[in-house]
Design a binder for these strands. Structure first.
Lengths: 205, 205
DNA sequence: CCTACCGATCGGTAGG
DNA sequence: CCTACCGATCGGTAGG
């Protein structure tokens, strides 16, 4: 059936995207050859090109799929209608869960986004902005005085720094899990917000 | 004089390392050609090879110089004999200052360290461990109960996450400076530490 | 879907 | 003899 073939095609392509993400995460996009991708997938190079247009297409699909999932998480959590602080806590927990099960894709997204063409890069950055904005919005609702002091953006980015940097030190399979670190991040963050004084806000523009 | 010639040689090489770091940070190590490095430096390729052994040597020197400066910062601050919390605050402030004036090198260190040979990579990672250990040590002194709950390492890495991620969102020349964010980071961190409860510590091994 | 290739460009080095 | 380079091109390999 045509339906079957399409399904098999999708499954095979997802498999290829996962294998490619692993190679890109390990060796970097530029340093990874299409021959290596084909070998890792157990297919010939021409077969590989049956599932992806070119090497760049591979990178675009990996990045777009990952950022799309994060955007979806944001929309799902927003639809829950939670109070601001709880909303941030749930978002952080779910972001970290996504990172945990897509570590290669996360690494590719953070390190190889510079190799995307302008249009593709813009689309990915729009997604990232959407995700950041959701957290910043919740923070503004929780503490309007932070918004007034122009502290929401930097604080939001410090929060993302804590979770986005996790892939560099949190080894998969270790005693410390992503799920265990997520509440540490939000406890640290909300516990510390009060300590940020207005005197330290950036010069007004 | 031989002294003069050596000095000129050093200056020229430092210039090359800075230009190469800028290109590596922008395009990535693998995607940057030695021709591009030579062009950016205004020298011929054979001239470039007079100052560096090969492309790999370029990467090693950039990474080693940057991590060496961070290690030196750690040793200088430790020699000041400050109380633990103040020690961490000064270290963070000085790390951020280093990042601010060596943004390209910092980006290369975080993104291209995977292209180093095993020996060179090990030496760089040793330096990074030395830097992390200095902060973790101060944190253990400040709150021995965190050490007991195995929270020092994760908390230290969350702190580094906040500052190491800054290069992705803090635009040079913007209204918000590295110097302004450093105290925000330490205020947030020390203000939040109390909120980390023992109940959230990772499962003991 | 494979073997066999291409235009181009890579890192590195020859002779002068 | 040394150093500090230049114009030209090497052997191999990348994506396709």
């Amino acid at each position: 059936m045509a339906r079957m073939r399409t399904q098999t095609y999708q499954i095979q392509r997802d498999f290829i995207l996962a294998k490619a993400a692993a190679l890109f995460a390990q060796r970097g996009y530029t340093a990874t050859s299409m021959n290596e991708v084909a070998d890792a997938c157990g297919v010939s190079k021409p077969a590989l090109y049956h599932y992806v247009q070119d090497k760049h297409d591979l990178l675009v699909r990996i990045c777009e799929r990952h950022i799309a999932r994060l955007v979806q998480v944001v929309e799902e959590v927003e639809a829950q209608g939670l109070a601001p602080q709880q909303r941030v806590c749930v978002m952080v927990q779910r972001f970290v869960a996504e990172y945990a099960e897509a570590q290669n894709e996360h690494r590719v997204l953070t390190e190889d986004v510079k190799f995307l063409e302008t249009d593709d890069q813009q689309r990915v950055l729009d997604g990232e902005r959407r995700v950041v904005k959701a957290v910043a919005q919740a923070l503004s609702e929780l503490r309007p005085e932070l918004q007034q002091a122009q502290l929401v953006k930097p604080l939001t980015m410090l929060l993302f720094g804590m979770i986005n940097w996790m892939f560099t030190w949190l080894r998969p399979g270790g005693a410390l899990t992503h799920a265990a670190v997520a509440p540490m991040v939000t406890d640290l963050f909300f516990g510390g917000i009060d300590a940020i004084r207005a005197a330290e806000r950036p010069a007004s523009t």
